[in-house]
């Protein structure tokens, strides 16, 4: 049964469904209880599932993730909320040195079915540390899976799948899209959802491929629409999974279009675009009509909010890159 939900409500529904389905699931984070989280993603959950399962953590990110590791060793399935992207770093050590490695170090005898939810990205006029895109740090770390949703339906299915995953998943939520609405089948079976680590062609086109994820999928779709005025038919891929990457879907598209532009908010250098460009030139070198181009944040700190619109990729910058792939 489909209903129209915001992404925030879809995430809330996914958490609710998992708390109901599996009594090992716990939610931990700052202000996730009575307040329902600063973005209200956990709204009402503590009231319905109790303070033992929806836990207002003392204010330490390292504590939240470190204790999730212990809970996982004890057989629990913690879902941790990091309040904002820029506040994940106090937990970075626990994530990359512990969460990512314990399954491997225990020779597979202990699993880390931890989900780390991180609202990320900019465009909301926030003060510093509230608009960053740190996904590449995590995608770079072996042992972690990293995904991000771009619409309410995916938010619902991908969060459920992430929580059900026996591997740790860093789940990036594009905060500027929290209030966008879409159709969500809230009664859909987990087993019927599209595979978590598959990309999706969200617009098919013949002339060039745009790869985007999270907040930039909507922007890429707008760019594709605008490009039709120039007579260009762009294919848009929502990557969805950042680790592992569904290289096959991207390569097939490039084999068809011959041109690729990767778009993300994160700074370009050593970002996801770099990895995708490398893979495409390895696997589809002879299909490429032009170098793979990247459109992303500049290699600077995320700027003050009054200039963030200039810093963030937008339709014009995407189209400019598309133009360049055609004038190569």
């Amino acid at each position: 049964m489909a209903s129209t939900l915001t992404m925030a409500a879809a995430l809330n529904a996914a958490l609710r469904e998992r708390l109901e389905a599996d009594d090992k699931v716990l939610i931990m984070g700052m202000d996730v209880g009575k307040l329902g989280g600063v973005f209200r993603i956990t709204d009402g959950l503590q009231k319905d599932f109790g303070e033992d399962r929806v836990i207002d953590a003392p204010l330490g990110e390292s504590g939240i993730i470190g204790s999730a590791v212990g809970l996982a060793i004890r057989g629990y399935r913690p879902v941790c909320e990091i309040q904002f992207d820029g506040f994940v770093y106090p937990a970075f050590d626990q994530i990359v040195s512990q969460v990512a490695k314990i399954h491997n170090r225990s020779l597979g005898q202990v699993r880390m079915p931890i989900t780390i939810r991180i609202p990320y990205g900019g465009g909301i006029g926030a003060v510093e540390h509230h608009s960053e895109s740190p996904e590449a740090y995590f995608a770079h770390t072996a042992g972690l899976k990293v995904v991000t949703c771009s619409n309410p339906a995916d938010a619902f299915s991908m969060l459920r799948q992430s929580i059900a995953s026996d591997d740790p998943v860093v789940f990036f939520e594009p905060k500027r899209r929290y209030w966008g609405k879409g159709e969500v089948d809230v009664t859909g079976l987990l087993a019927d959802a599209p595979q978590l680590h598959r990309a999706r062609v969200v617009r098919s086109g013949a002339d060039a491929t745009l790869v985007a994820y999270g907040p930039m999928v909507a922007t890429a779709l707008q760019a594709a629409k605008a490009a039709t005025e120039d007579g260009r038919d762009l294919e848009v891929i929502d990557l969805r999974s950042l680790s592992p990457i569904d290289t096959g879907t991207v390569v097939s598209s490039v084999q068809k279009t011959g041109r690729l532009v990767v778009v993300h908010e994160a700074s370009v250098t050593l970002g996801m675009g770099a990895e995708i460009a490398a893979r495409v030139q390895e696997r589809a070198f002879y299909s490429l009509e032009a170098p793979v181009l990247r459109v992303g944040g500049f290699d600077t700190p995320y700027p003050a909010s009054r200039v963030e619109e200039e810093w963030l990729p937008d339709v014009d910058r995407i189209l400019d890159a598309v133009d360049r792939t055609f004038s190569f």
């Binding site: 506040f87 003060v127 700027p303 003050a304 909010s305 009054r306």
Partner: peptide, 25 residues
């Protein structure tokens, strides 16, 4: 300026012996 979003701080901590605001707890 910081809360308006025109700067990320912008003052010299050593001028008034008052460090930049720190948001990371």
């Amino acid at each position: 300026g910081m809360f308006r979003g025109v700067s990320l701080g912008g003052w010299n901590p050593n001028e008034n012996n008052f460090n930049l605001y720190t948001i990371v707890l």
